[in-house]
């Protein structure tokens, strides 16, 4: 290939990549922009507002308990993440480093459970929540969706790389398995912890369907649900305030993403790779 055609090729590639970046970033800019434009300007195509106003946020804060909903989202996503981290690291450790009867069968069964679509479980889970009296409670929101085989898969993978000598040394010092897990394995597996924490947190934070089933009190709703009901309640033409609430919903995860980009991409691609 000669120099000119190579240069052309490179330019085409950059054009494609830049077009892609605009395609993915511009809508977010447009969303934030709408939330701070004046109502007269919202429908305008101008890319820079002539006047910035917080009226859309004020209007929206008047109608949904934003702080309470954010707190509910944190409890929902944080609770699921914490339970997943603890229980899947325990199981992952046992499956990676301890010999016991039925280990391989058990691991295969756990992997198989990843193939079960949520739609098969949602009706019975909803009924279980109702029968336990867990409607509109954090327990109902968090516990039924805290089963996550992928955590086991990732922890097991990571724990297998920890040198056996470290475990043996701890055993000689009389450490129990839980102590080995929390004092040796987990501190050595921070990337695995961050990966599991991130993909687990993202799920419930962004989820709509499950909260829709088990929370009906506005007081108990996570923000994704509160925002949806607010947006669908005929805010006819109030796009500014709908974009304001979706901006608030997007910000925490986007900030996390900017800080932990590598982990996000790795965690999500490892989700796929297990296929």
């Amino acid at each position: 290939m000669d120099r000119i055609s190579r240069g052309l090729k490179r330019m085409t590639m950059y054009l494609i990549l830049i077009a892609g970046a605009v395609l993915f970033i511009f809508p977010f800019y447009w969303m934030v922009l709408a939330s701070i434009k004046t109502p007269e300007e919202v429908f305008d195509l101008s890319l820079i507002p002539s006047k910035v106003t917080w009226d859309s946020y004020v209007y929206m804060f008047d109608r949904i308990p934003v702080w309470g909903s954010l707190l509910n989202s944190f409890i929902f996503a944080g609770g699921v993440t914490l339970i997943t981290l603890i229980f899947t690291s325990m199981a992952g450790y046992a499956l990676a480093r301890l010999e016991f009867r039925g280990r391989d069968v058990l691991f295969s069964v756990i992997l198989l459970t990843m193939m079960i679509p949520f739609q098969l479980l949602m009706i019975p889970l909803y009924i279980i929540v109702v029968k336990l009296g867990w409607m509109n409670t954090y327990a109902g929101l968090v516990l039924p969706v805290s089963v996550n085989a992928l955590g086991i898969f990732i922890f097991r993978q990571f724990f297998r790389t920890v040198p056996q000598e470290l475990i043996d040394a701890a055993r000689i010092d009389g450490a129990g398995e839980l102590k080995i897990l929390f004092r040796i394995m987990l501190p050595l597996s921070k990337p695995a912890c961050v990966t599991v924490a991130i993909f687990t947190f993202m799920g419930p934070w962004n989820d709509l369907l499950w909260p829709l089933l088990v929370t009906r009190d506005q007081e108990m709703m996570p923000l994704a649900q509160a925002a949806t009901l607010f947006g669908l309640e005929g805010q006819g033409g109030q796009w500014g305030s709908i974009m304001a609430v979706t901006t608030i919903l997007a910000v925490p995860v986007v900030v996390l993403y900017l800080f932990f980009q590598r982990y996000f991409i790795e965690s999500v691609s490892s989700t796929g790779m297990k296929g």
Partner: peptide
């Protein structure tokens, strides 16, 4: 990183954004 941004964002955000 830019292409991945919508992947981490809630379907709720994206649905309203595109509905608009």
């Amino acid at each position: 990183g830019a292409y991945f941004l919508p992947v981490v964002t809630s379907g709720v955000v994206i649905s309203f954004l595109w509905a608009w």
